[in-house]
Amino acid sequence: MDSTNDHPLFQPAGLGDIQLSNRIVMAPMTRSRAIDNQPGELETRYYTQRATAGLIITEGTSPSANGIGYARTPGIYTAEQVNAWKAVTDAVHQQSGKIFVQLMHVGRVAHPHNLVSGGKTLAPSALLPQLEIWTDQAGLQPVPIPQAMTAAEVNLTIEEYADAAEKAIAAGFDGIEIHAANGYLPEQFLNPHTNVREDQYGGSFENRNRFVLEVTAAIINRIGKERTGIRISPFSNYNDMPSYEETTPQYEHLVTELNKLQVVYLHVVEPSARATEEGQALLRSVRDLFNGTIIRNGEYTAIKAIEALESKQADLISFGAPFVSNPDLPYRLQHNLLLTAPDVNTFFAGGEKGYIDYAFAEA
């Protein structure tokens, strides 16, 4: 690969009413450095180092006290958190970067040791997941059974999402991403094995889609469709999400409705879907059903990313782990430079090591 700008991966792209410098997206990745559940100087340096991405999507950030389930993960539901994130967004914007915050409510993927004051573990249904989760107090612990959300709690949670989105804009973010993937609260509503409700949010796949669509509509009503994206992971079993037969028609319905809402992008986590012919067919269907920007994610190389862009299967490509250890990833990809391998032992370890100490390539 040469160092010219002819390849679509390195060309500018529009996203809603903002302009991205390239089509390389930094995927959202939990890094567990947020002491007291808010970003600090380390996070500011981490994101600023990676501001040459066309778009940064932050680590999962909770819309409420009930949404935090992991150790040292941030929120955006208090004035203090808004002010802390403002330092991050200001620094990224000073480097001409663009940044969305990912709103992540973990639902049942939580432990009391990691909850903040006033928080409780809520899920669509009181079903025990077969999971363990890290706690700083006691190491790995089994995830306990969650509380089934009441109708009032469902409505309150939707309002919390909308309020967090509004706070995100106040904190200087260019937009938000709803995390409806990877087995967290929105996907817990989607899956019939984790949602056995008998009200309007359970039963048929149309009903199971309702929570995600109402959250999306509430956020759009508050901050606008051009600032609202969403992430999905069809066929994924991550976080103890069992497979089910209605996956294809359910996601086709969900994407059709998201298209009607005109969300600015659909961020698709692909590896599980790629593994089967049915999943591959769904990925093609998603492209046909959605008129907005599609971000594809899942072990992409520069060559595979360019192929996806040129074939119109994607408009942007997100990279995860390579961005951890290569803060200047767009430059390295464009100039075909060797990538530094990440140290997986420091992904969630806290502190500077494996976070802000990776070297930049020599210009």
Score class of each variant (00 low, 15 high):
M1W: 13
N5H: 14
H7Q: 15
P8K: 14
A13L: 13
A13M: 12
D17F: 12
I18D: 12
S21E: 12
S21L: 09
R23V: 10
M29F: 03
T30Q: 13
R31Q: 06
I35L: 14
D36F: 11
L42C: 03
R45Q: 14
R50F: 06
A53Y: 05
L55A: 03
T58H: 06
G75H: 04
T78I: 08
A79C: 03
Q81I: 04
W85Q: 03
A87P: 01
A91C: 05
H93D: 00
Q94R: 15
Q94E: 11
M104T: 14
V106T: 15
G107S: 04
G107P: 06
H111L: 10
H113V: 09
L115I: 03
V116Q: 14
G118Q: 02
G119P: 06
T121L: 13
T121I: 15
P124H: 08
P129W: 07
W134Y: 15
D136W: 05
D136I: 03
V143H: 07
I145M: 15
I145T: 15
A148F: 05
T150C: 03
A152T: 12
V154R: 02
E159P: 08
Y161Q: 04
Y161I: 11
A165F: 08
F173H: 05
F173M: 04
D174Q: 08
I176Y: 08
N182V: 08
N182T: 09
Y184Q: 07
L185H: 10
L185E: 02
E187W: 05
F189R: 03
F189E: 02
H193L: 10
N195H: 01
V196F: 07
R197Q: 01
R197V: 01
Q200T: 12
S204M: 02
E206V: 14
E206A: 13
E206Y: 12
E206D: 09
N207K: 15
R208I: 01
N209D: 11
R210P: 07
V215Q: 00
I223W: 06
K225E: 14
F235N: 09
N237I: 15
D240L: 01
P242V: 00
H253P: 00
V255W: 08
N259K: 03
L266I: 10
L266V: 09
E270T: 06
P271G: 07
S272T: 09
S272Q: 11
A275L: 07
G279T: 05
Q280S: 12
L282P: 08
L283E: 01
V286R: 10
D288L: 15
D288F: 12
I294F: 11
N297T: 13
G298E: 03
G298T: 02
I303S: 14
S311Q: 13
S311D: 14
K312D: 15
S318N: 03
S318A: 12
F319L: 07
V324N: 08
S325W: 00
N336D: 12
L338I: 14
P342H: 07
N345I: 04
T346D: 06
A349M: 02
G350L: 00
G351R: 01
E352M: 08
F360Y: 13
A361K: 06
